[in-house]
Amino acid sequence: MSRLAWNKERRLLKSPEFTECYERGRKYFTRNFILFVKRRNEGQGGIRLGLTVSKKMGHAVARNRIKRVVREYFRLHQFEFYLPLDIVVVPKRNLEAKQLTLALAIEEFTPLLARIRAEAAASQERK
C-alpha cells in the first residue's frame, strides 16, 4: 500500500460520526464549501474526512467528481495535519462540478486549513 493511500481508518463512515461533527464541530466557510471541524480526544494524529454531497449538486457523475477532487486534495496534503481532527466537507449549491479542479481545491482549502492549524496551536498554548 502506498504511503499516500487514504484508507478506511481515515474516513468518517457512520452517521453518528457525521452528526457529532455537525453538532459539536466548528463551522468554517470558503467560497464553495462549508467545513465542519471537530477535534477528537484520541491521541492518534491525522484527520478523518467525511463528505456530504447531496443530490441537489447534480447527477451521480457530478457528485462523484466533487468527492474525488476533495479526497485527492486531502490525500496529497494528509501529512501536513498531525492534529486528531474529524472534518466533514459540504459543497455549497453554487459549486459546479465541471469547474472544480484540484487547483481550485488547493486555492480554497490550503489557507483555511492553515488557519485551523494556527487556531489549534494557539489553543494548545493557552492550556
Rank of each mutant, 00 (worst) to 15 (best):
residue 104 L to E: 07
residue 80 E to Q: 15
residue 60 A to L: 03
residue 101 T to R: 00
residue 78 Q to G: 14
residue 72 E to N: 09
residue 70 V to E: 04
residue 94 N to E: 11
residue 86 D to M: 04
residue 91 P to C: 05
residue 97 A to G: 02
residue 85 L to W: 12
residue 71 R to M: 05
residue 73 Y to T: 14
residue 71 R to T: 08
residue 81 F to N: 14
residue 102 L to D: 03
residue 114 A to I: 06
residue 66 I to D: 12
residue 101 T to W: 08
residue 94 N to C: 01
residue 78 Q to M: 15
residue 110 T to Y: 07
residue 110 T to H: 05
residue 74 F to V: 10
residue 94 N to G: 01
residue 71 R to E: 07
residue 66 I to G: 13
residue 62 A to S: 11
residue 69 V to D: 09
residue 78 Q to D: 15
residue 76 L to K: 15
residue 71 R to D: 04
residue 108 E to L: 09
residue 105 A to F: 02
residue 117 R to A: 12
residue 91 P to Y: 00
residue 69 V to G: 11
residue 88 V to K: 05
residue 68 R to Q: 11
residue 56 K to I: 03
residue 97 A to K: 03
residue 107 E to L: 01
residue 99 Q to P: 00
residue 101 T to G: 09
residue 62 A to T: 02
residue 59 H to D: 14
residue 90 V to G: 00
residue 110 T to M: 07
residue 115 R to P: 04
residue 94 N to L: 04
residue 65 R to I: 06
residue 68 R to H: 10
residue 97 A to R: 03
residue 110 T to E: 13
residue 61 V to M: 06
residue 75 R to F: 14
residue 61 V to K: 14
residue 56 K to W: 01
residue 105 A to N: 02
residue 90 V to D: 02
residue 104 L to Q: 07
residue 93 R to Q: 04
residue 67 K to T: 08
residue 106 I to Y: 02
residue 91 P to Q: 02
residue 115 R to C: 11
residue 74 F to S: 07
residue 116 I to D: 01
residue 76 L to G: 09
residue 91 P to W: 00
residue 75 R to Y: 14
residue 112 L to S: 11
residue 97 A to P: 04
residue 88 V to N: 01
residue 63 R to T: 03
residue 60 A to S: 13
residue 101 T to N: 03
residue 77 H to A: 15
residue 112 L to P: 09
residue 69 V to M: 10
residue 69 V to Q: 14
residue 57 M to R: 08
residue 65 R to P: 07
residue 57 M to A: 05
residue 106 I to R: 06
residue 60 A to P: 04
residue 59 H to C: 13
residue 66 I to H: 10
residue 77 H to K: 15
residue 109 F to D: 08
residue 63 R to V: 05
residue 103 A to M: 08
residue 97 A to H: 01
residue 75 R to M: 08
residue 100 L to P: 05
residue 82 Y to R: 13
residue 95 L to N: 05
residue 67 K to V: 08
residue 113 L to K: 13
residue 112 L to V: 14
residue 61 V to F: 08
residue 75 R to A: 10
residue 83 L to K: 11
residue 118 A to V: 02
residue 86 D to R: 06
residue 64 N to W: 09
residue 56 K to P: 00
residue 57 M to N: 13
residue 105 A to G: 03
